[in-house]
Amino acid sequence: MSLPYLKDAIKNGDNEKLIRYVRLHFGDGNEEAGSKEINKSWIEALKLLLDSPETDREFIFETLENKDPETLAHLYFHLHFHLLKRSGEWIHDGNL
């Protein structure tokens, strides 16, 4: 969906359309694949925390507090693809 379609969907509160878009983006144009990709990235994150390893929570708090929301949103998209790459199950054609 192009930017005008997305803005229109937001204006109309059309969440179905927006969810579909996010799935299309993550699934390279395939909604079902995108849905699976979202699950995959969360499973990868979950697996990394199973044994409760030590993590840098200060970094997390500092980042959340000091960075602008746009950068954090961008980071969210980056993390999704980063975790997928880590999972070793890469469905995309090219390289990040």
């Binding site: 930017l3 878009y21 998209f77 995309h92 054609d93 090219g94 390289n95």
Partner: peptide
């Protein structure tokens, strides 16, 4: 490559470079 709306920047690629000096970042082909 991850931005939902895309990237509107371009890169200058010096025309005298060798293939090993180039890399590809994209997800759609």
């Amino acid at each position: 490559t991850v931005h939902p709306i895309g990237d509107y920047t371009y890169r200058e690629v010096p025309s005298n470079l060798k293939p090993h000096e180039l890399e590809i970042h994209q997800l759609k082909y």
